[in-house]
Design a protein around this nucleic acid. Structure first.
Lengths: 236, 236
DNA sequence: GTATGTTTCAAACGTGTGTTTTAATCATGG
DNA sequence: CCATGATTAAAACACACGTTTGAAACATAC
C-alpha cells in the first residue's frame, strides 16, 4: 500500500542533517536560488528540475511534495546556523557565569551575526541565500514550516531572549522581547537586501557585501538595543 | 482593434487618485486583504471575486490584468501616504529654514511614522493593510510596480535622504543612506508584524496595536540613527 | 420606445501546475 | 548471470489558473 520511500524526510529526530543523494542536492541547490529570487509560489517544479538538469518526477520521488521540498531547502541552511548560534551562546553564557566576561548586548548580537556572516561568505553552504530565504519566510505564511520550527527550534529563541534580558538589565521582559524582535528583523532584512531605496530605483546603498552590511547594521542595532527604557517617562 | 477601456489606469499623470466604480472598490478591498495574507502569487482571481461578490471577469474588465490589479491595490494606499509624508516634510523644512525648529532626526522619523500611524488607525483607508502590503513589496519582486514607483515617487526618497542628512550632521552621504535604509526597514517590518518570534510560535510580542509598536519602535530607530559614525574608528 | 454606451454574467479557452503512473535503467549482492 | 531494490525517464493525469468571448442586463438620453 504505502510506497517504500527513501525516507530522507526532514523532521524526524531533532537537528540532524539528513544525507542527500546527488540528484537531491542538485534539486535543493536549484530550488534554493529560485525560491529566493521568485518566491515559493512563483517557482515551478519544471523550472527547478530544468535548472537542476534532472527529471521532473525526481522532486516527488526524493522529497514528498513541493511543500516538503521548500521545508528541506530551508532547514538545510537553518539547521547549521542554529547549531552554530547555540554553540556561540553556550560559550558566551559559560564565560558570563565564570565572571570572565559580563555578557554584553554586543556579544549576544555577534553570536548570531557571526554565524550568519560565516554562512554568507561560504558559497558551498549557500552564501547569502540563507538570510534572503529567511526574510521571505518571515513575510510569507508557510504554516507547515512554522510548526516544524517551533517544535524543533523553539528553545533557541527562548534562550536568546533570556540572554538578551541578562545583557540589558532594567528592562521588563516585554521590552526585551520587543527589542529582540526589532533587532532580529533589522538583521535579517538588512542581510537580505530588502531595501526601500531599491523599490524606488535608488539602489545606491544595497551593495551586497556582507562585511559592509555588518559594519553599518551592528552599530545601528546595538544602539537600538541599549536605548533607555521606553516604559519609564523621560525622568528616571 | 483596441478595446475601449474604462481607463481608470493608475500611472497617468502623477499622484492623483483615480475614481473607482463600486465593483472596482469591492475588488480592491477583497484583493488587498488576500494579497496581504497569502501573497500575490498565491491569491487567485477566483478567490478575490468570490470574496468580493462580483463576477470573475470583472477584474479583467475594470483593471487590465492581475498584475495591474496588484499595482492599483498598492498605489491606492501608497499615494495618500506619500502625499501626507511630503506635506509633513514640507512643513518640517519650512520650520527648519525659518530657524523655528532645528530639524531633528526625531522630527524626520515622525514625519513618516505619523502618516503610517494615521493610516493604521483608519479602517476606511485600509488600516494596517498598507504597511503589511508594503513589507511584501519589499521582499517580493514586482518589477512593474518598481518602475512605476521610481518614475512617480522617486523624489520622495531623495528628499527624505537630504532631510535626514541635515538632521544627522557629520555623517557621510553613504552612512545617511544606510541609516535611512535600516530605519525604514525596521518601521515597515515592525508595523507589518514580521516577527521572528512568530515564526517560532512564540508570538507573545506581536500585538498588532499600532501605538504599542510606535512606542517601542521609534526609540529603537532613533537610537540607531543617532549612533556615532561607523566610519571613524572608536576614538573621535 | 428605441438606440447607445456601459457594466455584468456564464461559459469556455488555452496553458501551466503539482502529482501519479508505468516502464526502463542502473547498481549490487547472491 | 540473474534477481532485487533503488533510481531515472517519459507520458499522462486531473485540476486550477489568468484571460477572453459573446450575449444578457442595465442605465441614460434622444
Amino acid at each position: 500500500m504505502d510506497q517504500a520511500k527513501p525516507s530522507v524526510l526532514v523532521g524526524q529526530s531533532g537537528p540532524c542533517e539528513p544525507k542527500y543523494s546527488d540528484t537531491a542536492i542538485r534539486i535543493l541547490d536549484a530550488a534554493e536560488g529560485l525560491f529566493v529570487e521568485l518566491g515559493m509560489e512563483a517557482t515551478s517544479l519544471r523550472l527547478i528540475t530544468q535548472q537542476a538538469g534532472v527529471n521532473l518526477a525526481a522532486v516527488n520521488y526524493h522529497f514528498r511534495s513541493k511543500d516538503a521540498l521548500f521545508e528541506a531547502v530551508f532547514l538545510r541552511r537553518f539547521g547549521p546556523w542554529a547549531t552554530q548560534c547555540l554553540e556561540e551562546l553556550d560559550a558566551l553564557e559559560k564565560r558570563g557565569a565564570a565572571g570572565e566576561e559580563p555578557l554584553t548586548a554586543e556579544a549576544v548580537v555577534m553570536s548570531y551575526v557571526r554565524p550568519a556572516l560565516a554562512l554568507s561568505k561560504d558559497p558551498a553552504r549557500g552564501g547569502a541565500m540563507f538570510v534572503r530565504l529567511f526574510s521571505r519566510v518571515l513575510v510569507e505564511n508557510h504554516r507547515q514550516l512554522r510548526e516544524t520550527m517551533s517544535r524543533q527550534y523553539g528553545d533557541l529563541v527562548t534562550r536568546y531572549t533570556r540572554a538578551l534580558g541578562r545583557a540589558l538589565p532594567g528592562l521588563s521582559e516585554e521590552e526585551v522581547e520587543w527589542r529582540m524582535h526589532l533587532g532580529f528583523s533589522v538583521m535579517f532584512h538588512a542581510f537580505a537586501g530588502n531595501d526601500i531605496l531599491k523599490v524606488f530605483g535608488r539602489s545606491a546603498v544595497s551593495a551586497r557585501d556582507p562585511d559592509l552590511i555588518v559594519k553599518h547594521m551592528v552599530p545601528f542595532v546595538l544602539a537600538g538595543l541599549r536605548s533607555p527604557s521606553a516604559d519609564r517617562p523621560p525622568g528616571s
